[in-house]
Design a protein around this nucleic acid. Structure first.
Length: 593
RNA sequence: GGUUCCGUAGCUCAGUUGGAUAGAGCAACAGCCUUCUAAGCUGUAGGUCGAGCGUUCGAACCGCUCCGGAAUCACCA
């Protein structure tokens, strides 16, 4: 039950009695700030024209009427124009019972909609880095949020497995690799391939230097450097399906996939559908030709096909080259069309960095010009860059934070810290591994997901390896402590209360139930705005509220058995909601740490 | 230059459809481990919400104008 809505209805009815018909939106209810007494607050300023009284008198009048007519209202106080309403303990006790009885608490009713979330979308020429981590964590979490909001969700990954950048790694491996393989080198497949991508760039730069020192201008040198010429020749061979090049391509991509699988597994992300660009890059041509025939696009003298978007404040956009080959936009038009057809999608969400805002603006506009109503159901979830203290990450300059290194480092730090604090004694190696994995990744994931996706965020590798304060491990710790209490209570033969007696609730516990009751609405809000950060901050507030209040006394030593049973029930519910919220972020919660 | 996004404490970030005295964490300072886990708790200090004007009973939030920063504007993907 939504408390705000419940009270809203009562207040609307009361106000209608007092002032006649009115717009329900005039009655603004919000949670009472903690420095005031009360549970919900009605802001009376919008009502003054109807009541024709001062804010204080209006609040007083409504408060008295509510107290008289609504059984759940226990009392009220008026501060300036704010009517602070207190709800009865019995009401709150019933809410806690509702939550406990609801096994799918936080799970929204089915919407009947199918939503595809495309995320990750890596290139197969280098390992994943910190920027990819933000993408993957956001994509996974948004997919989970949409599921929780009642949608059928398809997680999709479109792998960019072809193109000149792939040929660069392949060529460099041929030239300098001496047959090196992941097995022979001990390198993870994606790292091995990435090594040759870097090697290509190094050799390329060397050749440019060589050519320019002999008087060639730089642009020409970039075009004519032999190694670049070779790479382009290789791409043409690939497109002609030259058996040798194709075999090499398959072999090296295979190495990369083995590497990516490990990284995905470590991050805990997965996909329902994997698309390969090598199979989809021909899509879209027929759409463009259709649009051309209908006069939506136009052809230039050299045969290239364009969309003129200057009427919409944008530029002209190339859709087919003069030689008839397609570009990125062409493929995306085709894949979007195919997906809506094949999967019967209601919505398609692309998790892609904000450097591609323009691309998606154009994509949607073109689809709309082609007359596809579903273009409105495409969303570009545009997230900000992750910056380092030194500035941006540049893969070619080696200033990237490698995903695998980062994950390993976090897990290792979690392990050191656990040992130092003397936790985890008496657990098996396997248990310790699992817990440290959860904590290390929890810290990393939470650090990234607590920030609003749209914002550029700063990642300081030193400060970010923090397990204190507003972090994932703090929330995990709170969960672990509750589990510990429940474990010990159970050993002592104590059980959580089956029935909640409102008379035993103290104000802090009422506040805690109030926070718990907000969880479903929070999940829905997060799903609607594609912002895992909303859930992340909520879970922290919940954990902090619990930790702050329950720190001062011992549940286990409580003399009053009824109170003790109630507190165990409340603690268990808090732990359940924490675990549920963290799961939406892809973060596990250990039972001890 | 055009378009889009961002600007909140020394630092990293929250801040609900506009509501009360703008909140956390980190860093600093002062306390708290014979009681369920101190990865914790309590307290102190820290603010011209980039600037100005406007709308409103009321603005960090809405509008306009500036200032500062980012992304993008390829026959790359």
């Amino acid at each position: 039950m939504n408390i705000e809505k419940f009270l809203q209805d009562k207040v609307v009815a009361t106000a209608k009695n007092l002032y006649g018909e009115l717009d329900p939106s005039l009655l603004q209810l919000q949670k009472t700030r903690k420095e005031f007494e009360g549970d919900m607050t009605l802001v009376t300023f919008p009502l003054l024209k109807l009541s024709r009284k001062s804010p204080e008198q209006t609040a007083q009048q409504i408060g008295e009427a509510l107290l008289e007519q609504v059984a759940e209202v226990k009392g009220f106080n008026v501060v300036k124009g704010f009517l602070n309403i207190s709800l009865s303990e019995a009401f709150w006790a019933a809410r806690l019972e509702d939550i406990r009885a609801d096994e799918g608490f936080g799970q929204g009713a089915p919407t009947g909609r199918t939503v595809m979330v495309e995320y990750s979308s890596p290139n197969t020429n280098k390992p994943l880095h910190l920027g990819h981590i933000r993408n993957n964590l956001l994509g996974y979490s948004v997919a989970e949020l949409l599921k929780a909001a009642g949608n059928r969700v398809i997680k999709a990954n479109l792998i960019n497995d072809r193109g000149i950048h792939i040929c660069k790694s392949m060529l460099a491996w041929q030239l300098f690799g001496n047959g090196e393989t992941p097995a022979s080198s001990g390198l993870k497949g994606d790292h091995l391939v990435g090594k040759y991508y870097v090697a290509f760039d190094k050799a390329y730069k060397e050749e440019i230097r060589e050519l320019t020192s002999r008087g060639m201008d730089e642009e020409q040198a970039k075009r004519e450097a032999p190694i670049m010429q070779q790479a382009q020749a290789m791409l043409r061979k690939w497109e002609a399906k030259d058996p040798e090049v194709y075999a090499l391509w398959e072999r090296m991509n295979g190495w990369v996939y083995e590497g990516f699988d490990l990284t995905y597994k470590a991050m805990g992300v997965d996909f329902d559908k994997v698309y390969y660009e090598s199979q989809t890059y021909v899509l879209g041509k027929s759409l463009v030709e259709d649009g051309l025939a209908r006069g939506v696009f136009f052809r230039k003298e050299d045969g290239s096909v364009w969309a003129d978007l200057s009427g919409d404040g944008l530029d002209q956009k190339l859709l087919l080259r003069g030689d008839g080959t397609s570009v990125y936009m062409t493929q995306d038009l085709g894949t979007a069309y195919t997906r809506f057809q094949e999967e019967q999608l209601d919505d398609l969400i692309y998790v892609v960095g904000n450097e591609q805002n323009y691309h998606f603006q154009v994509l949607k506009l073109i689809l709309s010009k082609l007359g596809y109503a579903w273009s409105d159901h495409i969303t570009h979830l545009s997230y900000g860059m992750v910056e380092l203290p030194e500035g941006k990450m540049k893969s070619r300059e080696g200033t990237v934070v490698d995903a695998d290194d980062l994950i390993d480092g976090m897990v290792e730090t979690a392990r050191e810290m656990s040992q130092e604090l003397g936790k985890l004694d008496g657990l098996s190696e396997q248990q310790i591994d699992d817990i440290c994995q959860m904590i290390g990744l929890g810290a990393l994931k939470y650090f990234i997901l607590k920030v609003d996706p749209r914002k550029t965020m700063l990642f300081d590798p030193r400060e970010s390896i923090d397990f204190n304060g507003h972090t994932g491990p703090f929330i995990q710790y709170t969960h672990a402590r509750i589990c510990s209490v429940l474990r010990k209570a159970s050993e002592a033969g104590l059980a959580p209360a089956a029935k909640i007696d409102g008379a035993l609730l103290v104000p802090e516990e009422v506040a805690l139930i109030g926070t718990l009751a907000e969880y479903p609405a929070t999940v829905l809000a997060a799903a609607e705005t594609y912002s895992p950060s909303v859930v992340a901050n909520y879970v922290y507030e919940l954990a902090k509220a619990y930790n702050g209040y329950y720190h001062d006394f011992s549940v286990l030593r409580e003399q009053d058995k009824a109170k003790q049973a109630l507190r165990l029930a409340l603690a268990g519910t808090v732990a359940r909601v924490i675990a549920s919220g963290m799961a939406l972020l892809g973060i596990g919660v250990p039972e001890r740490m």
